[in-house]
């Protein structure tokens, strides 16, 4: 009885996005132009401006998200990163000789990139607010990267069987270290139903030009969202494999036929895809998220920036 009455009262808060393709295109063009004439330095401010726009066009329950990052913070992150990577690579390269190059490559792919992703995620969450309250990512980028390496090795040993575990475990690490204000996200780990889809789509992979994986990826997204809760709120994702495949195919053709000029159109498609598929279940008005205390880092994303890694939360 109780359960039934609860489901009938469930509040579904759809995420909405109202960015305009023309405005994204304008921003994109302006950023490219200014980046070129400032020898690349404007990039950090351009990136920030674009994020401010995109994040600001998302709305949840009547209120917009806000990106509070600043260009100078990205620039500072870049300055911290550059000497570090130059000196360390320089040494690695020559200590290990030519074999070291391959080694370095593997290390970058398996360890440094996940580290960069985690760091960037941390920065971006801390700069994303809703109703004035910030997101937060705790945990360690090194641990996250180590987890990635561990699962990579396990995947090799099991001939790819364990991929759903890899995907879910990494997501779990991020989710369980994510806060909104001082409310912690909790995550229920399971790979239920993923295994079958993983094997099936893997089998069909060569016959579908890899598109079969869209069905696995979509299922993964739904599964990841479904297992997230925060202060009684839940996430819901309704993306289907078909939706994801259409998104990818569309983006592919846009890139080819516009010779890359359609980048802003692709951004728009991604944003609309997120908004169309994700909602927050639960009464947002009843729950009060409290801002966490503590200072914010002054710089961000140096590593991710240098490696050209871009991750999106919104």
């Amino acid at each position: 009885m109780n359960e039934k009455s609860e489901t009938s009262q469930v509040v579904v808060n759809k995420l909405s996005y109202d960015g305009k393709t023309s405005q994204v295109f304008g921003l994109w063009l302006k950023n490219i132009f200014l980046t070129i004439i400032t020898l690349g330095i404007y990039r950090f401010w351009g990136k920030t401006e674009m994020r401010k726009y995109l994040v600001g066009r998302f709305e949840l329950n009547g209120d917009r998200f806000e990106y509070t990052g600043r260009g100078i913070e990205l620039f500072r992150g870049f300055l911290i990163f550059v000497p570090f990577i130059v000196i360390s690579s320089f040494f690695l390269f020559f200590f290990f000789g030519r074999d070291g190059i391959d080694f370095l490559f593997v290390v970058i792919i398996l360890f440094i990139i996940p580290m960069a992703i985690y760091g960037a995620l941390r920065y971006r969450l801390s700069r994303t607010t809703w109703r004035g309250v910030r997101g937060r990512l705790v945990g360690s980028a090194v641990k996250y990267a180590a987890l990635n390496v561990g699962y990579f090795i396990l995947t090799l040993l099991t001939f790819g069987l364990i991929v759903p575990y890899w995907d879910m475990k990494l997501y779990q690490y991020v989710a369980e270290n994510t806060y909104f204000g001082d409310s912690k996200v909790s995550f229920n780990f399971s790979t239920k139903g993923l295994m079958k889809l993983h094997l099936l789509t893997l089998l069909l992979f060569p016959f579908t030009l890899s598109l079969s994986r869209c069905w696995y990826k979509a299922a993964l997204m739904r599964h990841q969202c479904a297992n997230v809760t925060i202060d009684g709120l839940r996430l819901r994702c309704v993306a289907s494999g078909g939706d994801l495949a259409l998104l990818k195919i569309g983006n592919y053709f846009i890139t080819i036929f516009t010779l890359g000029l359609g980048a802003s159109w692709i951004i728009q498609r991604h944003m609309n895809f997120i908004a169309a598929n994700i909602s927050v279940i639960g009464d947002l008005e009843k729950i009060k998220f409290v801002q966490a205390k503590g200072k914010l880092a002054m710089s961000g994303e140096g590593l991710a920036d240098g490696l050209g890694v871009d991750v999106g939360i919104l």
Binding site: T35, I36, L39, G40, I41, R43, F78, V82, I85, V86, S89, F90, F93, D305, G306, G308
Partner: peptide
């Protein structure tokens, strides 16, 4: 290599 990092990151070309 340094120039690569710079050139890539800063677009110095």
């Amino acid at each position: 290599f340094s120039m690569l990092v710079f050139g890539y990151a800063g677009g110095f070309g």
